[in-house]
Design a protein around this nucleic acid. Sequence first.
DNA 1: TGACGACCTTACCGATCGGTAGGAAAATAC
DNA 2: GTATTTTCCTACCGATCGGTAAGGTCGTCA
Lengths: 200, 200
Amino acid sequence: MPLSTRQQLLDAARHLFASRGFYGASLKGIADELGLTKQALLHHFGSKERLYAEILSQVSDSMVGRVRLARQAASDPIEQLVAFFDDYLGAMNEESDTAQILMRELVDNHARADKVNTWYLRPFLDELVAIARALPSRSPLDEAEAFAFVYSLLGAVHYFSVSRPTLQKMYGRRRFASHRREMSAEIRRLIEARAASLGG
Amino acid sequence: MPLSTRQQLLDAARHLFASRGFYGASLKGIADELGLTKQALLHHFGSKERLYAEILSQVSDSMVGRVRLARQAASDPIEQLVAFFDDYLGAMNEESDTAQILMRELVDNHARADKVNTWYLRPFLDELVAIARALPSRSPLDEAEAFAFVYSLLGAVHYFSVSRPTLQKMYGRRRFASHRREMSAEIRRLIEARAASLGG
DNA sequence: TGACGACCTTACCGATCGGTAGGAAAATAC
DNA sequence: GTATTTTCCTACCGATCGGTAAGGTCGTCA
């Protein structure tokens, strides 16, 4: 069974928003990917902003789901974080568009997001912060500290993963072949080092 | 002595490119900040791409300078990294536009950068990688491992710093007042943890 | 005084932006 | 078999995009 036109449009839009950003992607460019006109897009979604919002909700739901799975996979918060970020690291290779959009929205879209005044990704952040605050500790992390920590992890993963194509181009593909492993180990180190510093 | 029009245009352009990205910032929007027309901009820089290139090279030079200062400030590579990232963390508050543009260029501008096929920031990355590879170790980092490490540090710093306005809006200003300290300590932890894992 | 160059203007250009209006065609419902 | 709804089209709209052409207003130097 073929995908609905609507879903195909969403996929094409996600790809283009990921590679060029909200302003850089045009309705015509998205519709062209399927050989349709931009009016077909507008028929399905009403406006560019609503199309983008729908993509963001899919991204957010997907990420919240991944965090919850990781929380179920282990009872130790450290292992929950490791499980999530490891899964996430893998997901970014298969779903690099999703990762790119997530990153943009977290650090890079203040102007646009302020305008529409909606934060689709807050549920996702809240889930992660909740795990971080459950880390065993003599003095548990307050919300802001937990955010600093969670953001540093997201940043570390994103930076490596999203920029991989770039680095491959700059430094050659061969050198990056073993990096999934390397990065995975790096993430565990970051999490364990932080947990250790809490002295739980 | 007032700044030259040219420099004022560069400053306005940097600000707008930082907050809206290459595609989202328009020549008219930049020129309007000074009450000039976009043709005044084009007179000084020729094209949007050349204007952006000039800003990128300022950013790159500034960052390379900061790394070199950090390298002179200490002989121990660990302390060089700590010095740089600590300086950088401070710089991002004063020069948040520069930081935002740097981030975009590192992770987010493949489409545009591929087109012009020029990497202004490679010298900056090379400087950092060189420090990372000088870390005392039984088996020194290869280039790719050094990159993973450097990127994780850049990612950690950027994520916290660039998104600070966002987080303040979401969670209140007060909670983030003490965070420069917190983040600074976090960065040192990350660097020392990695150095320790090398077993130098 | 006159020439020249730096600086910035108005007036355009063709292309593209997001979005609207109205209708053809095809599927669906009755 | 007819009515309705979904889907997608052509044809537009005003606004804006980056960029060009030509000219006017300066200060500088001869």
